[in-house]
Each structure stands twice: as structure tokens, then as C-alpha cells.
């Protein structure tokens, strides 16, 4: 059951990811990315991360990607023109990427323990309560720094996007 669920959602994530790279129109790419994020949220649930799955839905697919879709619609930009791939990119890009991916999977296969796999419900230490406790005790300083970062980002976005005052 676990393996089937994993394979289904992993397949959705990979197919949507490929679609995101292949599609010429930015809105198609954005929706594919939403698909990837929703599939990842389901995988987080399988890994016992209930809170982070909900946060993924609320923050990523519910806020960030809506912002992307909003900007794409606002600019009403059409499909991408034929992209220019330089020769070195054409002949070395894909093989290098494959090599990179191969090395990563090889390392992953070698380094991780083969014995204990992921079972649903095998780890219950990451509910909202535990995350909240950890966030406001051990990680209090990063939390506050992040809030200041967000404040700066909001101010920056307003300054960048406002109309020029003559």
C-alpha cells in the first residue's frame, strides 16, 4: 500500500515536473508546478509531516503560485518564442545532467540504510504541536530573523512595484 501510494504520487510529481519544463506557455508551466507541489504535499503526509503538508498547500500552492498565475495573467505574456540553445548546451547539457543525476542516485543508494524504509505512521514526532514547540524554543532566533526578512521583502516589493511619483 505504501509503495503504491508513493509510486502514484511520485509519478504525478515527475510527470508534472517534466510538463513544466516542456510546456511553452508560462501558465501551463505554473499549473504543472502546482501539480508537483500538491503531489509533494501528499508525499509529506506519507512521511508523517502533517503540518508541513498543510503549509505546503497553504503557502506554496495557495499563495505563491496564485501570485505567479496572477502576474502571468496581468502581463498577459504569450507563449515563449523558439528558444536558442547554444551548441555546447545542446551537446553537453543533457549528458552532464544525466551524469549529475546518476551520481546523485548512486550516492543516495549507497549512503542510505536499506533496512528501515518509510511506512505511513512510522514517525509521529512532527505534528503541529512538536513543530510549534521546536520553532519557539530552539529555533526562536531564526524565526524572528525570518519575520524581519519577510518585512523587508514586503517593503521591497512595494517600492519596486509602485508607480513612479512625479
Amino acid at each position: 500500500m505504501d509503495a503504491i501510494l508513493f509510486l502514484v504520487f511520485a509519478a504525478i510529481a515527475v510527470i508534472c515536473g517534466i510538463n513544466m519544463v516542456v510546456q511553452k506557455h508560462p501558465i501551463a508551466s505554473a499549473l504543472s508546478l502546482v501539480g508537483v507541489m500538491a503531489a509533494l504535499a501528499a508525499l509529506y503526509l506519507l512521511l508523517g509531516g502533517e503540518f508541513i503538508a498543510a503549509a505546503q498547500l497553504v503557502v506554496y500552492s495557495g499563495a505563491i503560485m496564485v501570485l505567479f498565475v496572477f502576474v502571468i495573467m496581468l502581463l498577459n505574456a504569450g507563449a515563449e518564442k523558439k528558444s536558442i540553445i547554444r551548441p555546447w548546451g545542446k551537446y553537453f547539457g543533457a549528458p552532464l545532467l544525466l551524469v549529475f543525476f546518476g551520481i546523485m542516485s548512486f550516492v543516495v543508494q549507497r549512503m542510505t540504510p536499506a533496512s528501515d524504509g518509510v511506512t505511513f505512521g512510522g514517525f509521529r514526532g512532527a505534528g503541529p504541536r512538536e513543530i510549534g514547540q521546536s520553532l519557539f524554543t530552539v529555533y526562536l532566533l531564526p524565526f524572528e530573523v525570518t519575520s524581519i526578512l519577510i518585512l523587508i521583502a514586503i517593503l521591497g516589493a512595494i517600492v519596486l512595484a509602485r508607480k513612479e511619483i512625479d
Binding site: E50, F51, A53, A54, G62, V66, V69, M73, P128
Partner: peptide, 21 residues
């Protein structure tokens, strides 16, 4: 689920895609 209310918030956030699309 132990995160019921967050789940509803997340799903209602996704609802905007239908109208926007």
C-alpha cells in the same frame, strides 16, 4: 486528520485556480 482546519484553508486557497483559469 489532526490538521483539519489547515487542510480546509489550503484547499480553499486552491479553489481560486478554477476561477482564475
Amino acid at each position: 486528520p489532526s490538521i483539519g482546519i489547515l487542510f480546509i484553508l489550503g484547499i480553499s486557497g486552491m479553489g481560486v485556480y478554477g476561477v482564475a483559469l
